[in-house]
Design a protein around this nucleic acid. Structure first.
Lengths: 120, 120
DNA sequence: CTCATTACTTACATTTTTGATAGTACCTAA
DNA sequence: TTAGGTACTATCAAAAATGTAAGTAATGAG
């Protein structure tokens, strides 16, 4: 599922940074292009795959799946499959997932003020 | 200097996300592999190019230059060149750069607790 | 039997980011 | 005149992330 090479310089650099530097570690986990937006939506409650897709109009199903899988691996979201047809799958933040709230709030605040600054 | 294609889907997705979503915007600015570590070091005061390099043992000069240029473009660091030989160049956070402190603090906190959780 | 619905998967292509390596310019001191 | 220190730049290559397009499985409704 993952196509990363454990022998690459890139990989060992990331690993070393993550080891020494918790903010780099955090960024490597939530730094994907769609990750924060997904988590933002999930902060207001669990959502089905299709509901997430609707809220992220430009994401492909492939990317949504990949991001959700990564979030699941990192224990940030939980995935519940109902034995129905057509299938129903619900995604919900775990407690460490909900703990992202203050991080996201600070990022938002900073983002807003940076945007304002550079629009002058 | 930048090799991004303004016609790509990727580019327009990033743009749209950054427009609607300040946390995605922030992440696109400080989400580079070395960005947060560089800012972390600069939080404790200005540093010369070579000093930064020493503190980031595995970074190449090229990457350090690229990251610093991007930070400069985004008004997060200022660059002061002294007319000396050999050259001396100092990098320092701007005020919006120093404003990253709470963001970094939250990221650190979250990173630590996530690390702890996944080590059990 | 056929179709519709939902949540995927697979194979491939493109774009973006990162790394390796070898330069360059400048002046000063020896 | 030559070497040395500093902060780069230029080219090329590799790796990683993202996008495109076309499937698949399951089953209940008609």
């Amino acid at each position: 599922m993952s196509q990363i090479k454990p022998t690459s310089t890139n990989f060992s650099n990331k690993t070393a940074l993550s080891d020494e530097c918790p903010e780099a570690y955090a960024s490597s986990i939530i730094g994907g292009q769609w990750t924060l937006v997904i988590c933002s939506w999930l902060l207001s409650g669990k959502l089905r795959f299709g509901e997430l897709k609707k809220r992220l109009p430009n994401i492909t199903e492939r990317m949504l799946t990949l991001q959700l899988r990564k979030l699941e691996q990192n224990k940030i979201v939980s995935r519940v499959v109902y034995a129905e047809v057509p299938p129903r799958v619900e995604y919900e933040l775990t407690s460490i997932g909900y703990a992202l709230q203050p991080v996201i709030k600070e990022l938002e605040k900073w983002g807003e003020s940076h945007k304002q600054l550079t629009n002058e």
